[in-house]
Design a protein around this nucleic acid. Structure first.
Lengths: 236, 236
DNA sequence: TGATCTTTTGTACGATAGTACAAATCACAT
DNA sequence: ATGTGATTTGTACTATCGTACAAAAGATCA
């Protein structure tokens, strides 16, 4: 209802709305939802607090709009990559391609949105940890379809593994992915400076390699529970 | 300075201080630090808000005390289990025992503390996501030693894997562990009710199985970067 | 019992939260 | 140039925050 492209300009506009969204995204992703005030966001965006209310009505509305902004493009990208991955003939290569299709969009720029998917993925990680209600609803109704599609695809390339095991392992994948984005500095610290945890390319390669192996692990045989359990459990 | 064990009672005391700690732990772990007010905590503990100030001075002080309460016992338990795991002779079994020594105390009761380690581990996950300063400091100076010990132990049982890769993989392990405790209901949902994500024993077995395989994956050969990269990357 | 601690209660204060809203300002079609 | 709708600003309201502190209550021991 706004769109003012009468003459020549079609894309660029020093938009306050965009600035607020970007600032909020960054602040929410690093500090959580409740630790950031509307005034903080406005200040970071160079805007007036009232302007946030004007554009997004409430703080929840602002968060909602951030999600709306990213979910579509990211899931589209994932669908495309997943479709391509499904066409890989070699089963081992296909599994890796599927995992990559899941991981890459989460780490790198989601379509035309500035800043990229890493910030948004980190935001999702933080909201999920905080148990944010707004986020929970959107996540469940937006990402579950994608998650199921990936689980199905992985299951197809690993038919001998029960679906429950694949669910668990893809859950672990998401956890590892989230945590890598939340505290990359921990990787740098624990490696004594040998690796940069913030390096997306490096993180992706490591995550893909580890995750593919995890998916390929033999399934948990719930039929015969105590086959060859190793020691330690309740020794000391 | 307090200790009033004059006659016979040595342990039991209907302690308000304990109730506040337990309530705060639960609320922080599920809602984050900033979303929970001192009044919420006091109400949940059946105490007066002023009582929180009396016992812990500030809200940060309360969080600090929660950490102090758990860190010692949990790390002690981990050290014991790690020491036992190190004595396992078979390399494959040893690796699994080490991973188990890391995971089990995080999921189950840490020594005599009520409620157990799962709640505290979840708390750590949430604080880490929120970038809580108090938590960050304690974590870095309390858990890094333990993390290094585990990384070293794993490295010993997998000498052909570079240390950097092991750091990444143990980072993924912690992320998967955290996420399993933060949103167990997602596992139930994605498995269409077939598994209970809150079942600690099941989660542990799945996590251990997947993680051991991830650690055993061939290392990323950074020497020759493009040896046999699979397809898809930038195709579509 | 009464004195002396510790603990709990009740209340209050200043700061800051989210949001509402009128006034000022801007962008653009005529 | 001017009118009109979109945006931005400034300010104010109420609620709630963390914390302080005095008074009440409870416990401990001479």
């Amino acid at each position: 209802m706004v769109r003012k492209s009468t003459s020549k300009e079609t894309a660029r506009k020093p938009n306050m709305r965009e600035a607020i969204l970007a600032a909020a995204e960054e602040l929410f992703a690093t500090n959580g939802f409740n630790a950031v005030s509307v005034r903080d966001i406005a200040h970071a965006a160079g805007a007036n607090p009232g302007s946030v209310t004007y554009h997004f009505k409430t703080k929840d509305g602002l968060l909602l709009e951030i999600y709306r902004r990213h979910c579509g493009p990211m899931n589209l990208r994932r669908s495309e990559l997943l479709a391509a991955a499904r066409r890989v003939r070699d089963l081992q290569d296909r599994l890796e391609a599927i995992v990559r299709a899941y991981v890459v969009p989460a780490f790198t720029s989601g379509s035309d949105l500035a800043g990229g998917g890493a910030r948004f993925t980190r935001l999702r990680a933080v909201m999920s940890a905080e148990g944010n209600e707004v986020a929970r609803k959107i996540i469940a109704q937006t990402f579950d379809d994608t998650s199921h599609a990936f689980i199905d695809a992985i299951h197809e390339s690993l038919p001998h593994i029960p679906r429950t095991d694949i669910v668990w392992r893809s859950h672990f994948l998401l956890g590892a992915l989230y945590y890598s984005l939340v505290t990359p500095e921990r990787v740098s610290r624990l490696s004594r400076g040998e690796v940069d945890g913030s390096d997306a390319a490096g993180a992706i390669e490591q995550l893909v390699r580890a995750t593919v192996a995890a998916f390929q692990a033999p399934a948990l045989d719930q039929a015969e529970p105590a086959r060859r359990r190793p020691v330690v459990s309740s020794k000391t």
